[in-house]
Design a protein around this nucleic acid. Structure first.
Lengths: 229, 229
DNA sequence: CCGCAGCATTCTGTATGCAGAAGTTTGTAT
DNA sequence: ATACAAACTTCTGCATACAGAATGCTGCGG
């Protein structure tokens, strides 16, 4: 297991990545995959043995996992896998929406012709995946499109926050993660047009509605709605 | 302080805070106060001795400081105080602006009469401090007003992000931290009126302009402008 | 049968020890 | 004098050790 961890880490960074980084990644994987369930008490010694390292790198990984919102660290009690609540999920969606809206506004102000071209390529990819019914490709394309818009926005602080928030949103909704489909990609097309025109106001407005609808949709699915539109 | 912001922590028993928390706070204080200058190499052993603890809590505090953006952690080299750039400062101001704007919108939708009453009290305090020329009181009142609005917004995720971003903004501009004065508090009054009416749209708009002006003002001061209006 | 006090166990939080990497200095040869 | 290399000096990263808190268990008394 130790070999697996170090091997997984080596291709990441030029410098030898610390063990704690590998542990951090491994634990997130375990949480996302459901091997560690919300509320579960994480005993350092057990994790250490399971991963073939000492408690030290495990502790340091847990620290980061806390500040990133994956686990709760209760003093003198240890780490517990974070239990997402409906309320918190709703709050996350709201925050993500305003951040993405800002991202779209900035992108509209910055986008160069080649950026727009790339956006259309990603749009094509998404529409293609939609037509093929390839859900995994669809999700990938959606993520790529949004994060490319963020990169056009050229605001590292914003990008970091969106990344953090989005990852948690994804986790909360993992069990019901169904892409919205056609409507969403029509909205993407409108968004790209606005960005191409440099119309920040309109780009922001479209993104705001887009993300709010995604939130509503996910809530609906959570409440029992089926299928994808 | 961070705990106080999360709703979950409110009804939790006060437990002895781990040393690493104290170290974390102490290091931020040292960074903000300028005792530790940007780019400086932080040697764990030195910090440990200076703070009277072992290297262990120091290490764990540095981990968190990294994910919160206060230090950079280079593998096998250790921690370096993060060097803020003009660009990053501008990005922070932008992000803070959209977050505060969202906060104002939410507050307008949630505010109860007693909340509005409290807001007017804080407003009085600020105006009083302004008249008395008491800068410290003015800053305190300003912070209190903004954070009370955030608490009315009742979004823990948002509150956490605003807290993080604001603290860094304060750090970047510490050397030139001069409050804007009369104009800012006129804007506050307008803002409270909008919140009282439950006019989210208007409250958001006022806050957006308010925070953008604060950013502009600070930039102007940074560029050499004097005094407070 | 239930409640509670005291003890045992378990786990965290902190300290210390140790091996290896990174940076620095010194010495040597050209 | 300069370039290069090897030893040296740090410092990090990980492992191990130990003290104290929190939880659970046991046994006694009601």
């Amino acid at each position: 297991m130790r070999e697996a961890l170090t091997a997984a880490a080596t291709h990441r960074v030029a410098r030898p990545a610390p063990l704690r980084q590998a542990v951090y990644d491994a634990l997130i994987e375990l949480i996302i995959s459901g091997s560690l369930t919300p509320g579960q008490h994480l005993v350092e010694a057990e994790l250490a043995e399971h991963l073939g390292v000492s408690r030290q790198p495990v502790r340091e990984a847990l620290q980061r996992l806390q500040t990133d919102g994956w686990v709760d660290l209760r003093p003198a009690q240890g780490a517990f896998v974070h239990s997402p609540t409906e309320e918190e999920a709703a709050q996350l969606l709201g925050v993500r929406s305003v951040l993405e809206t800002y991202s779209a506004r900035l992108a509209a102000g910055n986008a160069k012709p080649e950026d727009v071209e790339r956006l259309w390529e990603l749009q094509e990819e998404g529409v293609g995946a939609l037509a093929a019914g390839d859900v995994e490709r669809l999700v990938t394309a959606n993520t790529a499109l949004h994060s490319f818009i963020t990169s056009i926005a050229a605001n590292a602080v914003l990008a970091e926050l969106i990344s953090q928030v989005s990852r948690k949103v994804r986790w909360y909704y993992t069990p019901i993660a169904k892409p919205r489909g056609k409507d969403a990609w029509n909205e993407h097309a409108q968004l790209i047009k606005a960005i191409a025109k440099g119309d920040a106001e309109r780009a922001g407005e479209i993104m705001r509605k887009h993300t709010e609808r995604t939130g509503d949709y996910r809530k609906a699915v959570a409440a029992g709605a089926t299928a994808l539109s």
